[in-house]
Every structure is written in C-alpha cells, then in structure tokens.
Design a protein around this nucleic acid. Structure first.
Length: 101
DNA sequence: CAGCTGATTGTTGGC
DNA sequence: GCCAACAATCAGCTG
C-alpha cells in the first residue's frame, strides 16, 4: 500500500474548526450508513455494551463484510456525496442569485 | 502538475 | 450539546 500516510497520522486526536462561511458539509461515509443498519444488529448481539464496545465491534464487522457487502453502503455514501456536491455548488454560487450585488 | 491536509459524517451513552 | 473510537471520504488548497 502505496500512497504515503493519509490524513490521520495515527493519533486519536480530534479537532475540527470552521473555515468557510457556507462550509458545504461533505457527504456521509459508507461507515455511517453501515452503522445505521448494524448498530441495531450489533447492539442486539452485544446487549449492555457501551459505545466503546459497539463502536469497535461495529468497525470490525464493517471490515468483516465483503467488498460487495459494503457495496450498498458505499453506494449510499456515493449518493450522499452527490448531495454534498449540491452544497458545494451553492458554496461556489456564493449564494448570489443576482450577479449584481 | 502532484500530493497532502483538513474538515466532515453518524453510532452509542452519560452529565 | 459534547466527547470519545470506529471508518471512509474526497474536495480543495498549496508548493
């Protein structure tokens, strides 16, 4: 696996700040859709487990799926991205319906 | 021209 | 309302 280390270097640091005025929130991620469905299943097989467990289990199950199984989730993610494209568009449009400002 | 980075998305669960 | 691991993302900016 090529490709130099990607974004998250490897630390569990979170931080997100604003930077754009309209900030076109990106589309969701395949994991988001997958979690939406598995969260029920995972929690059912792991009753009483706090997010810490479910969260990790969810991740394991996620990768446990076959590329094809994630396909539907990826598909949703792609569809969601589309939605984001729209926001991005408005972001570009600068919300100026009238060229004359 | 190419590569990186940051920002974001949603789950649960308690205070 | 926020925070945390878990995973994907991928669009935009910069040198």
């Amino acid at each position: 696996m090529p490709k130099a280390a990607k974004g998250r270097s490897g630390k569990a640091e979170k931080k997100r700040s604003k930077k754009d005025p309209n900030a076109p929130k990106r589309g969701l991620s395949a994991y988001m859709f997958f979690a939406n469905e598995q969260r029920e299943n995972v929690r059912e097989e792991n009753p009483g487990v706090s997010f810490g467990q479910v969260g990790k289990i969810l991740g394991e199950r996620w990768k446990a799926l076959s590329d094809k199984q994630r396909a539907p989730y990826e598909a949703k993610a792609a569809a969601d991205k589309k939605r984001y494209e729209d926001e991005k568009q408005a972001y570009n449009a600068d919300g100026d319906d009238d060229a004359s400002s």
